[in-house]
Design a protein around this nucleic acid. Structure first.
Lengths: 336, 336
DNA sequence: GCTTGGTTTTACAACGTTGTTTACTACGTT
DNA sequence: AACGTAGTAAACAACGTTGTAAAACCAAGC
């Protein structure tokens, strides 16, 4: 195994604590001793044992990011932001895939790995308010997404309602009147889908357009295949829509595929807008209009909140951060 | 903080070690004592401190996966496989983004986090053979990709040369004769790009077609934008190609975008094939033909090798695993 | 009653690190 | 000459856990 502080001390002919002092830049170490220790440090290729440090009460410099699905581009791109920005805090990011409620639970509630990490950022998908409130683990936590609970938990989100309203308003501004939505999740209340649906309906109301429930397609999950299936459903309607707001970009890409296969022009026959701003949308044919949340800002805010809580302890009052979003108009709602 | 073993012992009225014995299913504990301890364990919601366990010489149950770029779909999808399969070994995966040589180095060579993890799987991009050989850290390691070094390191890969040959042969079978390649990396020898180029040339040679270096476009990185730029270069040639083999799917998608913008038909004017088999290609317009490595098998093999090395120690001789790949023929080289 | 042998429980040490306390040195001040 | 004081170094304890070894308990056999 690697050299421990003890080996270094022996090698340098000083005490263990002196080595520790050198490592931690303790002020009162003579230049001579410091040099001697440093030489031993280099020669033995010493590397600190994080477990021991953590055990002693210190920190590991590792924070965990738990996302539902790392293979989804939005989360992959978000994770990349976290990894990058975490460096500024001197942190390494442990990325974890929750996949669903069960694992999510395990991480947040049981805190299995909590002794290895300094803090935890969770993007909840299946996590309910109750589960968060029942959380026993004391590891500092920041949630991504709307505030689900009154429990004292920091969270960072974007304004999903406003984003959905902006997307829908954009379709309305194109003159579309029969606007569909893909991605509702009727069985889940209070989640992202519910908020985006609310924004969708708000925009319709403002434009004095009757809400037609048959134009709202649920999606079990948010993958391309779900959007593909949902779009086909919509095209089978007696009166198909002339525009679609998809609750994320993957659904939109699936929808575009279905439209293409069935020979519908985009945006001529049907205009399509997504949500997320993943890079894939910018290279699709046609390129995809979308609402892009400021991912860098999300990561920045979440990490700042986490740092505050790690430093300030559990005492600090819970805080919320909002990241902006922007409307990106591309071919799927623009000029072909 | 959470309850420690000491608190549990106090609460149950037994010694610390007895609690430890119960936790670890030590055989000689009376039923009565066991029940008493278990009750205290439950009541105090005890959870073991992994740091302490690790410090004591045990394992964390955490393995790290280091990929160059988590936001690249291939790596995101690969990482998802690892996360899933690792569960079968009782492991949690710590995903790490290396981004380039510098960080890669830090992880593999310095082993910064090595005290927190049981093993490490690295997908090297910029890592050179020399760096691997100079590695000092003793953490069990499995490399993804071709064998770069004679150092005793396990590795798992696919046959890149054969894959590239298959892709190119497929283009040749369509009757194409002026076949370009996108993604060479002339300044890096022995890497993936070099192997795929070798396979490309081998297929041409078999078909007795002269290798035309002007048709080989380098790519600094493997993103959509690089493929887009490279394809535009190729289209500016006096004699543009009638087919392109892109060294990964993202390059291919960028190339398709460029072809679309310049009004070239695919596969009519130019046939395009990629490499990786990411899901995005199956929803692109046109859908993308590609070589798909068996990602599940890659993960399975790598984890098996890692487990072997963790159990068997450094003594075991290095082993190699090969995962199969398949040729997926879709619209970009098929019937539109 | 006392050894024997097996079962059950405990004390102790150790893993590597750092905060606290203590000890020593050299210097300048009374 | 005795006395701070500041600078430097080291001894010790502690974090939570588990392996080792020793101790305590119990029943059976003489």
């Amino acid at each position: 195994m690697g050299a421990s502080i003890k080996d270094v001390a022996l090698h340098a002919g000083v005490s263990v604590k002196t080595v520790s002092n050198v490592i931690n830049d303790f002020p009162f170490v003579s230049a001579a001793t410091r040099a001697k220790v440093q030489a031993a440090l280099d020669e033995l290729d010493y590397r600190p044992n994080l477990s021991a440090r953590l055990l002693r009460g210190g920190r590991t410099g590792v924070v965990a990011l738990a996302v539902p699905e790392i293979s989804a581009p939005y989360f992959a791109e978000l994770a990349a932001q976290f990894v990058q920005q975490a460096k500024k805090h001197g942190w390494t990011v442990l990325i974890d895939e929750t996949q669903g409620a069960k694992d999510s639970e395990r991480i947040v509630l049981d805190g299995i790995k909590s002794h290895l990490i300094d803090g935890l950022i969770v993007s909840p998908l299946a996590l309910t308010a109750k589960e968060i409130e029942q959380r026993r683990d004391r590891t500092p936590l920041v949630l991504l997404g709307e505030r689900l609970t009154k429990a004292p938990v920091d969270h960072v989100s974007i304004d999903n309602v406003a984003g959905a309203t902006a997307a829908t308003a954009h379709l309305l501004a194109l003159g579309r009147r029969r606007i569909a939505a893909i991605g509702s999740q009727p069985h889940i209340s209070g989640g992202t889908a519910a908020l985006r649906l609310r924004g969708f309906r708000a925009a319709l109301r403002t434009a004095r357009i009757r809400y037609d429930a048959t134009l709202v397609q649920p999606a079990k999950s948010y993958h391309r295949a779900d959007g593909y299936a949902a779009m086909n459903q919509l095209l089978d309607l007696p009166q198909p829509p002339d525009a679609v707001f998809c609750f994320n970009d993957l659904l939109a890409i699936g929808a575009l595929r279905a439209l293409h296969e069935r020979g519908r022009g985009v945006p001529g026959d049907v205009a399509v807008i997504g949500f997320d701003g993943i890079e894939e949308g910018d290279f699709h044919t046609p390129t995809l209009s979308t609402i892009r949340p400021d991912r860098a800002e999300i990561a920045r805010l979440a990490l700042a909140l986490l740092e505050r809580r790690i430093d300030g302890g559990a005492s600090a009052s819970p805080q919320e951060g909002y990241a902006p979003f922007e409307l990106l108009i591309r071919q799927s709602t623009g000029h072909p």
